[in-house]
């Protein structure tokens, strides 16, 4: 090990809703899934991207002129040309040591407030070797949480769990067909890793996005409750918010959910109550 680099698109100090205490959340760039409701498209591609904010442009044309040299695609050299600073490069490579060093600088704050660092994404498991290296450096010094879709290599995931103090694990859709349809992935990977998580003994919380007509159906919620009930884990429901599409223009994409975003969310969580699963709606 050593010398591995990771691609990060955001480091957010004082992430209030990503675990206990005062935490820094780190967003890994790149995700193997393509969830239909994804609110953070900046995290999807595991490459550096040049992003242009849609608002405040004075239409000076400087970036277009520069981009023409590259067949009309924005390049790094466009960044400095914008008089309003609206173009930026998303994704920065860090050495594991370097990234760990950033968190260690704030260890006093974390220790005083019961906080720590939360690795999120994108999908942090998509860069699991790098994540292993960073967390090995931090283990025992700083409280470490991860937020994951569980979509990654099981052997590596087991190894990683030895370094982790708290896991937020997504269970989105249990039905194989629907999971494929709405996320592009294979649910068996998620379920296998969920098994590994339960075996590991690491404390975890299950997170369920409540997407109208997709994840909030009685069957899906029932299936999730069924899987969670014996683990003793708590469930956090994350209701879909109509703001999900806010960042798509920035990455030059359009937000096109294939479900009815205006539909009311079904909050009937009877399946969880019945099975004695503790939950919170965030």
């Amino acid at each position: 090990m050593g010398g591995r680099r990771g691609l990060i698109f955001s480091i957010e100090e004082f992430a209030v809703y990503d675990g206990p205490g005062i935490r820094t959340a780190v967003f890994f760039k790149g995700c193997p899934l393509r969830c239909n409701w994804c609110h953070n498209p900046e995290g999807l591609e595991g490459i550096q991207q040049i992003l242009r904010s849609p608002n405040g442009c004075v239409k000076c044309g400087a970036c277009y002129k520069e981009a023409e040299k590259n067949g009309g695609v924005l390049t790094k050299s466009c960044v400095d040309l914008c008089p309003r600073g609206l173009i930026r490069e998303s994704g920065k490579y860090f050495e594991a040591e370097e990234l760990a060093g950033i968190f260690l600088k704030n260890k006093d704050v974390f220790d005083r407030t019961g906080g720590g660092v939360t690795f999120s994404g994108g999908e942090c498991l998509a860069q699991v070797d790098f994540l292993l290296e960073v967390t090995s450096t931090l283990k025992g010094k700083i409280n470490i949480a991860i937020e994951t879709s569980g979509y990654g290599d099981t052997r590596k995931f087991r190894e990683l769990l030895k370094n982790i103090d708290l896991v937020y694990y997504d269970l989105k859709i249990i039905d194989r067909e629907n999971f494929k349809k709405y996320t592009g992935g294979d649910i068996s990977v998620v379920l296998k890793n969920f098994g590994a998580l339960c075996e590991s003994g690491a404390p975890f919380t299950v997170r369920v996005p409540l997407i109208p007509g997709v994840t909030d159906t009685a069957e899906n919620l029932g299936a999730i409750a069924d899987i969670v009930k014996d683990s003793g884990a708590e469930v956090e429901f994350m209701p879909y918010n109509k703001m999900a599409g806010g960042k798509y223009k920035l990455v030059g994409r359009e937000y096109r959910p294939s479900f009815d975003t205006t539909r009311e969310i079904n909050y009937d969580l009877g399946a969880f109550i019945k099975n004695g699963v503790a939950y919170k709606i965030k």
Binding site: S53, R84, L86
Partner: peptide, 25 residues
């Protein structure tokens, strides 16, 4: 927007820079 590049808004379970959101949002 150039005066507020650091203005962060919590949209729901996530944060974004206010400038980077579409006008509608």
């Amino acid at each position: 927007p150039e005066k507020y590049p650091d203005l962060i808004v919590r949209v729901w379970g996530w944060s974004g820079y206010f400038n980077e959101l579409d006008a509608a949002y």
